[in-house]
Simulated assay, not measured.
Amino acid sequence: MPRKFGEIAFTPEVETAQSKRGSRETYERYIAKGPANDLITPEIAEFIAHLDGFYLGTVSSNGYPYIQFRGGSAGFSESA
């Protein structure tokens, strides 16, 4: 498991839930041993450049999921 994923995804609320369920120590080991994986490589940038959209999923601290689509023409960029 990449370290950045754990740093971003495991909020204090998530860590508390993991502790209650007995999985926190396991996740801590995965994160500590995992690769940084926090860079966008040229290969990833090329892949993204050819996409016409993607789904972004998050979960709020109360457990509700929020899924949204973002996209446009291939290589889309933020417009003013």
Rank of each mutant, 00 (worst) to 15 (best):
E28R: 14
A49V: 00
S77Q: 09
K20S: 07
S79H: 05
G57K: 04
G75E: 03
G57E: 06
I44D: 04
P35M: 03
E46G: 00
E46F: 03
T11A: 02
P2K: 02
F69I: 04
A74F: 03
S60C: 05
E43N: 01
P35V: 13
S79A: 08
I44T: 09
F76N: 01
T16V: 08
I48W: 02
F54Q: 04
Q68T: 15
G6Y: 12
D52P: 00
R24N: 10
S60M: 02
V59W: 01
G22E: 14
D52M: 00
F5P: 01
R29M: 07
A74W: 04
T58V: 07
S73C: 05
N37L: 06
A32H: 14
K4M: 08
N37V: 09
I8C: 12
A9H: 10
V14F: 13
G57M: 09
K33P: 03
K33Y: 04
F47D: 03
G71M: 11
T11I: 01
S61F: 07
F47M: 07
T11C: 05
A45G: 09
E13S: 10
Y66H: 14
M1T: 14
I40C: 11
E13A: 15
Y66T: 15
S79M: 09
P12M: 13
N37I: 11
N62L: 07
T41L: 08
V59Q: 00
H50F: 05
Y64F: 03
G22L: 12
E7K: 04
R21L: 12
A45R: 14
V14E: 15
P42S: 06
I67S: 07
R29E: 11
A17R: 14
Q18I: 01
T41N: 07
L39P: 01
T41V: 09
E43T: 03
G72K: 07
N37R: 04
E15Y: 02
T58P: 00
I31G: 09
R21I: 11
S79K: 06
G57W: 00
I31W: 09
G22R: 09
T11L: 08
T16H: 15
R29C: 05
D38F: 01
E28K: 14
P65K: 11
F76E: 02
L39K: 06
R21A: 14
L51T: 02
P42C: 04
I40M: 13
N62W: 08
A32E: 13
N37T: 13
T26V: 10
D52N: 11
M1E: 05
R24S: 11
R3G: 08
S61E: 15
F5T: 12
Y64N: 04
